[in-house]
């Protein structure tokens, strides 16, 4: 019998060729300039948010100068708002609540979404039936109203707001995860796991879930953006923690003077816009990086 020659010649150092799938994703991501710009911007925002309070250890709600001072005057780079608060300080401290809520709400969204989607897609049958009916129930409720109710039920705080946003946005993630599980559970490598006696928990969490990760990561990035917008919206409706500075709050309190003073509304709005845009660009970049058709180019 002829022994077959392996496709990799013997003298080649085999290990060097190994490119972890993630490294390939990173290579593809780097090739997308807009996504890299988004990532750099977001990292800058995070850096400023973390360092800001150390550089300016002040109360963001305290008046710092005259009311409605235009940008650049008397040393106030972005001017002051209708209560004389420094907008630079307002933006610095406001990003804290924006980013925290964005991340926490996205985490809640993803967690509930994965739990419901994975169990429904893997077990099928009555489990799927029950879980998907619950999902649909949450999906048909008007999200803003539901979030407002949740926030009003508990007193507005970063926690209640994150929970409110998470609770209204998980159904889309659950459907996505379920669809991935339905597709992957039929593949032979999942059957092979059952054939070697793997328990359901291992199959769900360590075999199927990592293979469902690419669309999930993209969707997570996008849900961060949506959560930030949601947080701003709730704050604008005065449904935010009154003791925590936030961009939406700044817009809301300065709204009546918008015709006399544009800056206290515009700068927080711009901050929200730039943050959401960079998150979306990252999501877009991840989407391309995970798309095998684009990868081959």
């Amino acid at each position: 019998m002829t022994e077959s020659t392996p496709a990799v010649p013997a003298e080649e150092p085999v290990v060097i060729e190994v490119e972890r799938p993630w490294r390939e994703v990173w290579r593809m991501f780097r090739a997308n300039r807009a996504a890299v710009a988004g990532l750099v911007t977001l990292l800058l925002i995070v850096l400023v948010t973390v360092l800001g309070p150390f550089v300016y250890p002040v109360d963001p709600f305290a008046a710092a100068g005259p009311l409605l001072l235009p940008p650049g005057e008397q040393g106030f780079l972005l001017g002051t708002d209708q209560q004389g608060r420094d907008l630079v300080i307002g933006l610095l401290y406001g990003s804290q609540s924006t980013l925290t809520v964005g991340a926490a709400a996205a985490a809640i969204t993803i967690t509930i979404g994965i739990l419901f989607g994975a169990l429904a897609g893997y077990y099928r049958g009555w489990v799927e039936e029950v879980l998907m009916r619950i999902t649909e129930f949450f999906q048909v409720l008007p999200p803003l109203l539901l979030a407002m109710v949740v926030v009003l039920l508990f007193s507005p705080s970063i926690y209640s707001i994150s929970i409110a946003i998470g609770v209204v946005s998980w159904p889309a993630t659950a459907r996505l995860v379920r669809a991935e599980f339905l597709r992957l559970r039929e593949l032979d490598f999942v059957k092979a796991e059952r054939a070697i006696g793997a328990r359901n928990a291992r199959i769900i969490w360590t075999i199927i879930l990592p293979n469902a990760a690419p669309p999930l990561i993209v969707s997570a990035a996008l849900s961060v953006g949506i959560a930030i917008l949601f947080e701003a919206g709730l704050a604008f409706l005065q449904l935010s923690d009154p003791n925590v500075m936030s961009w939406g709050y700044l817009i809301s309190v300065n709204r009546p003077q918008i015709l006399e003073a544009w800056w206290p509304v515009t700068f927080p709005g711009l901050a929200i816009f730039i943050t959401v845009l960079s998150v979306s660009l990252i999501g877009d970049g991840l989407n391309d990086a995970f798309n095998p058709k684009l990868r081959q180019r």
Binding site: M1, T2, E3, S4, T5, A7
Partner: peptide, 9 residues
């Protein structure tokens, strides 16, 4: 008898 093989790819 064993089948003839064409080794490699």
């Amino acid at each position: 008898p064993p089948l003839m093989e064409i080794p490699g790819v």
